[in-house]
Design a binder for these strands. Sequence first.
DNA 1: CGATTCTTTGAAAACAGTCAATCTGTGTGG
DNA 2: CCACACAGATTGACTGTTTTCAAAGAATCG
Lengths: 192, 192
Amino acid sequence: MFAEFETFIRERTDLSDADIEVIRSLAIEKIVRKKESLLHAGEVCRYKMFVSKGLLRTFCTKEDGSDYILQFSPENSWTTDPESFDKLIPSVCNIDALEYSEVIMWTKEDFNYLFANIPGLKAYTQKLIVQNMYVVRQRVLSVISSTPEEKYDEFIKNYPNVFARVPLHMVASYLGVSTKTLSRIRHAQLVR
Amino acid sequence: MFAEFETFIRERTDLSDADIEVIRSLAIEKIVRKKESLLHAGEVCRYKMFVSKGLLRTFCTKEDGSDYILQFSPENSWTTDPESFDKLIPSVCNIDALEYSEVIMWTKEDFNYLFANIPGLKAYTQKLIVQNMYVVRQRVLSVISSTPEEKYDEFIKNYPNVFARVPLHMVASYLGVSTKTLSRIRHAQLVR
DNA sequence: CGATTCTTTGAAAACAGTCAATCTGTGTGG
DNA sequence: CCACACAGATTGACTGTTTTCAAAGAATCG
């Protein structure tokens, strides 16, 4: 499980073996079965998580019970609730597994330690945050400016790997449209 | 113009007088009249900008000519097109002034210099990016999960200061709904 | 005051959402 | 191994909302 992470991080940083060893020593490895939860709304999100295998989803539930998916996290990606994690306040999101997954987690305390002592990791993390910003900004633009069909097409284009693995109604939830609308779009595209 | 910035940054960091002086020496002050542009789509966004007075808007234009507002930047806030600025690639956004504004700008090169030599500024900037992330994530959630009326109410609640200064059709553009819908909502709220 | 910008409105059309039912494929437990 | 339950996808009928387009008022600015 850690092996995948090590490969991943070595490709993106120039951490030393010693650095990796420290990072490993503070890592918590966790297996999550499909549908198992890693964070419930109301709890503090205590971990920064790396998905080394599988697929997670971050979602919020409104009063009426409807879900809205904020993020999919396939293997080789990071996830957490940043605001809850940083400020140690209760999260409004849930994180659970859409597939059998393997996750590596660090507490805030430990991650801060790594952050302070491994400059390469710090630089990498900061770059990641910035890149994430590009993506989220683009998503805001898409969601306010695109038609449902455009959103659907963009999703398939941007996340083919996720698209192939999640049920349609979750794509709908991610895009902010109803499953009905997605069905209609798909039907129309077939006919064409 | 720089005075407002100095007050602002001193309240949020513990920069020394010397630090401030360096920052000032690299700052470009610019007056922008209402409707004047600071960035056209297709250009590289060469500056990181602090709005010391006035109100800017960042928006994208689709092929059909319709605008979508990504961000309002009132006095005491920062703006740029992060991706264009960081990577020196052409921007897809425009930035212009909704009011007479006073803006302080730094090039990427100069900002990098400040970044490298003024740890307090670096720490502040990074915190800012992270906080911005919270806001944008919240916006994504809102825009995929809220009704137009909820979006409208949230906007007034979150940005009363901006709301009071921009025409309704720009609020609509920011929220991703038509002006018609906003009018209807307002009418309904009046009747109540 | 005239010109421009902004807001509201009406009517019609397009669109998306709800609800309920059906169909499918999957997988589990007996 | 089969039957059954279950999750997912699609569909139809209906409803309700949003958009579009155009036009008319209202407000603002020079």
